[in-house]
Simulated scan of single mutants.
Amino acid sequence: MIELQTTPDFNKLNGLIPAIIQDYYTNKVLMLAFMNNEALEKTKAEGKVTFYSRSKERLWTKGETSGNFLNVESMELDCDNDTLLIMAIPEGPACHKGNDTCFGEKKNTSTDLGFLEATIQNRVQNPKKGSYTNSLLDSGINKVAQKVGEEAVELVIEAKDDDEALFLNEASDLMYHYLVLLAAKGYSLNDVIDVLKERHG
Rank of each mutant, 00 (worst) to 15 (best):
E150T: 08
L137G: 03
R123H: 14
A152R: 10
L174I: 04
L155C: 07
E151F: 05
F103M: 08
L168W: 07
G149E: 04
F115A: 15
K129H: 09
N142V: 08
E164V: 14
V153N: 09
L155R: 04
N122H: 04
D173T: 00
Q146V: 01
I120S: 05
E105S: 07
L174S: 04
A159P: 00
L174W: 04
S139V: 00
Y132H: 08
Q125I: 02
Q121Y: 12
A171T: 01
K143G: 05
V124M: 12
K160H: 12
F103D: 05
K128G: 00
Q121A: 06
T111D: 08
G104R: 08
E117I: 03
D138R: 11
V124H: 07
L166R: 15
L166E: 10
N108V: 08
D112L: 09
A118T: 14
G104F: 08
V144W: 09
V148D: 02
E117Q: 06
G140R: 07
Q146N: 13
P127F: 06
I141Q: 02
I141L: 15
L174Y: 06
K160M: 10
L137E: 00
N142I: 05
F103W: 11
C102G: 05
E117T: 02
K107E: 13
V156W: 01
L116W: 06
C102D: 08
G140N: 03
V148L: 00
S135A: 12
N126Q: 11
T133Q: 03
E170H: 09
I120M: 06
D161A: 13
F167L: 15
E164A: 13
D100W: 09
N108L: 08
Q125R: 15
S172T: 15
L166C: 00
E154R: 08
S131W: 02
E154T: 04
T101G: 01
K129V: 11
N108E: 15
E158V: 03
F103K: 07
V124C: 12
L113N: 13
K160I: 05
A145V: 02
D112I: 08
D161T: 14
S139Q: 05
D163K: 14
K147H: 01
K129P: 01
G140D: 03
T133I: 15
K129R: 11
T111I: 13
E117N: 04
N108A: 12
K160C: 05
N126P: 02
Q125E: 09
Q125A: 08
T133R: 02
S135F: 06
S172L: 09
D100T: 14
G114W: 06
V144R: 11
A165Q: 15
S110I: 10
D163V: 07
D100L: 12
S131R: 02
I157W: 01
G140V: 06
L168G: 00
K128W: 00
A165R: 13
G114D: 03
L116R: 04
Y132E: 07
L113Q: 12
E154C: 03
